[in-house]
Design a protein around this nucleic acid. Structure first.
Length: 103
DNA sequence: ACGACGGCCCTCG
DNA sequence: ACGAGGGCCGTCG
């Protein structure tokens, strides 16, 4: 695992239970928006590290996005944390959105 | 709503 | 060592 990937995972690990963030926010935090593709790539590969709550990272358009264990699993996990999802979209998106810049 | 393409870092040939 | 391809995305047509 590279240093850059570590940085991504470190950020994801900071997302509290019941909150979400977007691929784009992480990308911007780390530099530029085109990183979104690599971020997805990285999370997909490192899912075996259970300590990283990959399911709390979603798409900017309020869809949940993809997940290595299946989208259904991702939705389940999110709903267990109080996030409301309807037809694949997060209903209370703005309320549960976590902002890294609050630190 | 859908498809194309962008410019990322990594992996693999 | 180098170049092509790939991926849990986002934007614009």
């Amino acid at each position: 695992m590279t240093l850059f990937e570590q940085k991504i995972l470190d950020l994801v690990r900071k997302i509290p239970q019941g909150k979400i963030t977007t691929y784009e926010k992480i990308a911007l935090k780390l530099g530029n928006k085109y990183l979104v593709r690599f971020i997805g790539n990285c999370l997909a590969k490192n899912l075996h590290l259970i300590t990283i709550p990959c399911h709390r990272v979603v798409r900017k358009d309020q869809k949940v996005g993809n997940y290595a264990l299946g989208v259904a699993k991702k939705i389940n996990l999110l709903q267990n944390e109080g996030i409301i999802i309807k037809r694949g979209k997060i209903v209370n998106f703005n309320k549960v959105l976590y902002d890294f810049n609050l630190n």
